[in-house]
Amino acid sequence: METRRRLVRAGSVLAVPILWFLLTRLGIVAGLPTPTAVASSFLEEFYRQDFWLSVARSTVRVLVSFVVAAAVAIPLGLLIGRYTVFADLTFPALEMLRPIPPIAWIPFTILVLPASELSIMFITFLGAFFPILLNTIQGARGVEVEFSRAAQSLGAGSFQTFRHVIYPSALPAIHAGMIVGMGLAWVNLIAGEMVAGGTGLGFLTWSAYTSGSYPTIIVGIITIGVLGALSSALVRLFANWQIGWREVESA
């Protein structure tokens, strides 16, 4: 990319804090914490154990829920995608649950699950589960029949065909689902933490609002945004690592 373009793009990013500064300085948006206030609040939080505990809590919740969601959704999606009978028996029930936003489950999970930690993780799990499931199903259905035929003619049994053909060729679709799923995991985690309370960055942000320490709200938002971006990057990295063969294709 030419230098001029780089500069413009950097300027575009820099314009965000500058605009923010001006908006607060000139009093255009009343009540918006100033960048300096947020920066000093950030410093304060930086030395508080509570803050780091919230960061750790939210991160662990997302990662564990996401991994469990992928571990359940991918095999399930492959089976639903390949076996009509299995699909007919399971998919309609899942389709009934899918339109319910995961966060709407929170009262149910608080009542039914033994610990509030599990409730929040279940919500986060649901957020990631359906995008991964749907994409996996689509990926498994999209596998060209000649690939599995080729494998069969080379002597592969049905499990081997699954492992060496259906799964790898569905991978790009699975990864697309994982990227969406990671985003939705964060959305629902934050909502869950705000609603169910207790711990985590969502709670930190919401309690900053209720307790009137407004700059901390923005500290929370920025932290959540950074962690969200990092985890999306992690999924992309993992995806690229897993399908090296695709990069060659696009090169």
Partner: peptide
């Protein structure tokens, strides 16, 4: 009654598995 490794197939558009070397 089904595919068998004794009967090998070459497809019209190549069907090498793109995800394998």
């Amino acid at each position: 009654s089904g595919p068998d490794p004794k009967r090998g197939v070459v497809f019209q558009d190549n069907r090498l598995f793109p995800w394998k070397t």
